[in-house]
Design a protein around this nucleic acid. Structure first.
Length: 286
DNA sequence: ATCCAGGCATGCA
DNA sequence: TGCATGCCTGGA
């Protein structure tokens, strides 16, 4: 057990409930979160606005894994400054203050975003929980049973039908394909960001949005700006005079406005928009 | 009862 | 390139 200090604000509720991660849970309304991280169970307790208390069932290499998970090398203050490009973004950044991007396990995280399409957070959480409980190894932490996320070899013989029986719908095929083929560049990532992106999109079931999410949340490339329906609503409303514009253009716009910190900007906007649904039409005009 | 959700692949202009 | 449609499921 040790303390992890941030000079900026760190808010566990915003970080774990914003929709970027699906398998960490709190049983005391946000003070403590517990979940599996790669090969171990991690417990995170908010001590004060700058300090987390970290504990785990496995201490080898713990600080390194945790630092990577929480992206402790990011200059959060600089990031916030450079995203505050106008009064609106100032409001968005202040509203989201304390939300940190997480650098997740790439296999687990990639699967969560393959399953995310045309779904919703509670359902994705249920899907991921089912996978872990059925196929993952169990681990005991503080006398409670948890499940690690299954490895590729744990899932290699699971058929599309079995995934369908778990309620994955047409995504079952994509998941089966992803596990079966799992190209080598996923293990040793291609350095060029856009080439990696194109390679991801060559995998059946992964399009622009999921590829961006995988790079952002699973491979820590925070220059990506995934455009989902919320991003579309926000950007059209505030940065395109409420006129319809393609998702591709919105992605370009986000990248040019926010540069290397686009991933943070995206998550802040997503968090802001979802918590202010009254500002955004439920359905966009064509 | 429709409708549509944190998309994608496909087919067509 | 841009747009329409079907796809599984399940919650509103």
């Amino acid at each position: 057990m040790y303390e992890l200090y941030f000079s900026e604000i760190f808010n566990t509720v915003k970080t774990f409930e914003c929709g970027q991660i699906f398998r960490f849970e709190s049983d005391d309304s946000g003070k403590t979160y517990i979940g599996a991280l790669i090969d171990r169970i991690i417990k995170i307790t908010q001590k004060d606005p700058h300090t987390l208390i970290i504990s785990s069932n496995k201490n080898s290499n713990l600080e390194k894994i945790v630092n990577s998970f929480f992206r402790t090398n990011d200059n959060y203050i600089d990031m916030q400054k450079s995203i505050k490009i106008d009064s609106l973004m100032k409001k968005v950044v202040n509203y989201s203050n304390g939300l940190h991007l997480l650098n997740q396990d790439n296999f687990e995280c990639s699967i969560s975003y393959i399953l995310s399409q045309c779904s919703n957070i509670p359902r994705i959480k249920r899907n991921m929980k089912d996978l872990a409980k059925l196929y993952g190894k169990s681990a005991i932490f503080e006398e409670q049973e948890f499940f690690l996320f299954p490895s590729r070899s744990d899932l290699i013989d699971i058929t599309e039908e079995e995934f369908r029986d778990l309620g994955f719908g047409y995504r079952a095929k994509y998941l089966r394909n992803f596990i079966k083929n799992n190209p080598s560049f996923l293990i040793e990532p291609i350095l060029d960001s856009e080439i990696f992106n194109k390679n991801l999109q060559n995998i059946e079931g992964i399009g622009q949005k999921v590829a961006d999410c995988i790079q952002l949340f699973a491979y820590g490339d925070i220059s990506h700006f995934p455009v989902d329906t919320w991003m579309e609503k926000f950007m059209i409303k505030y940065y395109n005079d409420e006129k319809k514009i393609s998702k591709k253009k919105i992605r370009e716009l986000g990248t040019s406005l926010f540069g290397k910190w686009a991933g943070y900007a995206q998550e802040f906007i997503y968090y802001y928009a979802r918590n202010h649904p009254q500002f955004f039409p439920s359905k966009l005009k064509k």
